[in-house]
Nucleic acid binder design. Sequence first.
DNA 1: TTATTGTTAACTGTTGACAGTTAACTCTCC
DNA 2: GGAGAGTTAACTGTCAACAGTTAACAATAA
Lengths: 227, 227
Amino acid sequence: MREIKKTEPLHSQVYHIVKEMIMEGKYQPGERMVETKVAENLGVSRGTVREAFRMLTKDDLLAQKENSLFVYHPDAQDILDIYECRKSLESLSAKLAARNITDQQLEQLEQIINESKKALAMPDTQKLTSLNQKFHDTIAFASRNKQLIQLFEVINAKVLYIRNCILKERSESFAVLVSDHEEIFLALKERDPAKAEEKMEAHIQRSLKVANTALSKQMDEPESSLG
Amino acid sequence: MREIKKTEPLHSQVYHIVKEMIMEGKYQPGERMVETKVAENLGVSRGTVREAFRMLTKDDLLAQKENSLFVYHPDAQDILDIYECRKSLESLSAKLAARNITDQQLEQLEQIINESKKALAMPDTQKLTSLNQKFHDTIAFASRNKQLIQLFEVINAKVLYIRNCILKERSESFAVLVSDHEEIFLALKERDPAKAEEKMEAHIQRSLKVANTALSKQMDEPESSLG
DNA sequence: TTATTGTTAACTGTTGACAGTTAACTCTCC
DNA sequence: GGAGAGTTAACTGTCAACAGTTAACAATAA
């Protein structure tokens, strides 16, 4: 029997489209978002856009100020705060994954690492970024904790956004990243929760340091988007 | 000059009202939520209710199934998952608070504990519950990590909901709770991050155990709302 | 020129209407 | 009596319109 394609509701489509556009920097941090314009651009009604905007506001990707909505514009402290939270959640994720991960998921991780090494040799920054995300997603999924996965959705939207729009990821940082991943993978393979947790925490701590130096480099450049 | 009272937007008011009603069990877990009815009850238009529903869905207090929305109905695993996340976030909260808490906030905590002891003597369960929440909120605020506070908003809505609607808090559990709080308070007063973190983790672990036994007691009662 | 006051134009908040879909409830006809 | 078609009623998805607010800009007076 042929699958019937029920079209996804418009408001949901608008949500995903606008979210992606924010992530890609198509809408700039701090930029004002206007219902009317988005509605016109996408060819839908204002009410539909409104629903999407409410959801994006809950994601913290839009923020209300006075009566208008603006694209999220994190300051330096926000970024530190986000990484601090991430450290805690990713450690938990690794710990739980060490208990619950399947052999198949371990294989997936191994493959991701292998591909990462190849991408590192090129080097292919775009691919490294996406593989990095995939690595963490796989572990989160392997934790089998739905609530944790939901919390990641909130925090990861911001992390990705920061990476894309605020920091310009420098390729030299990826080498450390991949070797960290390898250590985490080994801990998971040994199914050692404490070790996985510890390695993950160190890993996030290291990425924070990378972000931090990138951040302070940007502080020097006066035309930077970060004030 | 006289303050001008700008009325809060309707959709926001509806959000808070419906959220509260869900928390209080005025809408039952698993119950279907109908835009039309809520709109009529509150005397606002459907579009307004829609916006509130979108926000509640993001909070996970409503869940979409097919084309309809239902009140969140966590299963036993969800509850364990939530407490696992909470353990991680609350520990972080305590650790950061130990670094950043002000003397005034320490006084607040001390007062909360004193009131808790009084309420424990009565015993006044309602008050104990609200003081418990206040204790944790104060620490979260003292952490000065805005992202963490936002994550708590997501998770706490569920925790409160579970406490109110799923578990019936038994008063005997509160004694342990208050003495735990006292230990955490002392660690914060000494401004010892590691100790605060450790005490908090143990505390949440203990509340999980309380929840767990309450849960299994309920499993025996066949007319329970938990399947 | 600088303030102050109109005057639009641009938006947001809210609503009521309409189309399409699903669910429930008949009413047949076997 | 029961399977299947027909008929409503109940909802959701989407939109267009209107009122109220704010912001920008022009016009006028000091």
